[in-house]
Amino acid sequence: MSQTAHIPSHRKPRRSASKLAFRAGVAGGVLSTIAVAGAAAPANAEPVTEKTLEMPTLGSLDADLASAVSASAEASQQEALDQSLAAQENAALQKAAKDAKKAKAEADRKAEAEKAEKARAEARERASRTAARTSLSGTSSFSASDSGSSSSSQVATGSAAAIVAFAKAQIGDAYISGGTGPNSWDCSGLVQAAYAQAGIDLPRISYDQSSLGTSVSLSDLQPGDVLYWGSRSGSYHVAIYVGGGKYVGAQNPSTGVVERDLDWDPPSGAVRIL
């Protein structure tokens, strides 16, 4: 190729003058239209402003989540507390019902025991009345041979009858040291209570009781006399002579209150207080 050969240019060809003029005219028309529209717009028209949608920030989301978690925890805690209180109330009601049932059973047991004791007391009272009638009818009279005396038969009357009837009514009761009734006695407690039926107040101790009244021979006993074992001023046991050669006394824990013949355990002496 020769040095003078034509080499094509790589630059973009220039637009023609006619195209440039056309584009300039179009642009000028657009600008003119905008200007006319702006002149025709009302003077008090508010400028158009752009509104941007505000999106929640990460911090606000964390706060809302924390608040929701806290509310849920409080609700769970309150529910647990309510359940605990309900369980406690239920347990208290069950315990109250159990205690009431137990108290009723105990009250019923006591009522039955009182009823039985009342029946026994009524039985003793009937026995006492029967013994009194028997004594007054003469079946408790004793002869000279019964008591070892040469005196004629005698019947317990008046105060002696009341003392004898009471003593016999206690036969079968228990012996308890220091007992003064109504269902358990010791020897001097029974004698003291029997004499109280006749309105006579005796000392509580056996040797004080045997120190009262007048000494009488065992061959000259009368119903109501106080028998003693030991010395008169130092007796360790007392009983009541009930006639027919017998006496009633609170002997010991194994026998309780019994009626015995004089020869079963002969007394040391006797005193007459009536």
Score class of each variant (00 low, 15 high):
Ala156Ser: 08
Ser215Pro: 09
Thr134Trp: 10
Gly38Met: 14
Glu114Ser: 13
Trp229Cys: 04
Ile200Lys: 09
Ser60Val: 10
Arg129Asn: 08
Arg11Ala: 14
Leu65Val: 00
Leu262Met: 15
Asp265Leu: 11
Gly179Ser: 05
Asp225Ala: 03
Ala73Ile: 01
Ser135Asp: 08
Pro266Glu: 12
Ser128Trp: 07
Ala107Pro: 05
Asn44Tyr: 07
Asp263Trp: 08
Ala41Phe: 04
Ala68Tyr: 01
Glu74Leu: 10
Glu125Met: 10
Lys104Trp: 07
Lys19Tyr: 09
Glu106Val: 11
Ser177Lys: 09
Ser233Thr: 14
Ser184Thr: 09
Ala162Lys: 13
Ser137Glu: 07
Arg126Ser: 11
Ala131Ser: 11
Ala66Gln: 07
Glu106Ala: 15
Tyr236Leu: 01
Thr139Val: 09
Asp261Ile: 00
Pro13Lys: 13
Ala161Phe: 01
Ser18Cys: 04
Ala198Tyr: 04
Gly138Arg: 06
Ala169Ile: 00
Lys12Arg: 14
Gln94Glu: 14
Pro253Asp: 04
Val36Gln: 04
Leu227Gln: 04
Lys19Thr: 12
Lys168Phe: 01
Trp185Thr: 07
Ser217Asn: 10
Lys115Asn: 12
Thr57Glu: 09
Glu50Phe: 09
Tyr175Asp: 03
Asp146Gly: 02
Tyr175Arg: 01
Glu112Gly: 09
Ser206Tyr: 09
Gln77Met: 10
Gly243Ile: 05
Ser219Cys: 06
Gly29Phe: 10
Trp229Glu: 02
Ala270Leu: 04
Lys12Pro: 14
Asp208Glu: 15
Gln192Thr: 04
Gln197Tyr: 03
Gly138Ser: 04
Ala5Pro: 01
Leu20Gln: 11
Glu112Thr: 10
Ser235Glu: 02
Gly25Pro: 00
Ile7Trp: 08
Asp225Tyr: 03
Ser150Thr: 13
Lys104Leu: 14
Ser32Met: 13
Ile163Leu: 04
Ser219Thr: 15
Gln197Pro: 02
Pro42Ile: 01
Gly59Ile: 04
Gly178His: 06
Ser152Pro: 09
Ala37Thr: 12
Asp225His: 03
Leu20Trp: 01
Val155Cys: 01
Arg120Gly: 02
Leu218Gly: 11
Ser254Gln: 10
Lys95Gln: 15
Glu54Pro: 03
Asn90Asp: 14
Ser67Val: 00
Ser67Gly: 09
Glu46Asp: 13
Glu112Leu: 13
Leu202Met: 07
Leu85Ile: 13
Gly243Met: 02
Ile205Ala: 15
Ile171Thr: 05
Ala21Phe: 07
Ser217Val: 08
Ala105Asn: 12
Tyr236Val: 03
Gln88Asp: 13
Tyr175Phe: 11
Gly234Thr: 11
Ser152Tyr: 09
Ser268Thr: 11
Leu85Asp: 12
Ser235Asp: 03
Ile240Asn: 00
Ala86Met: 09
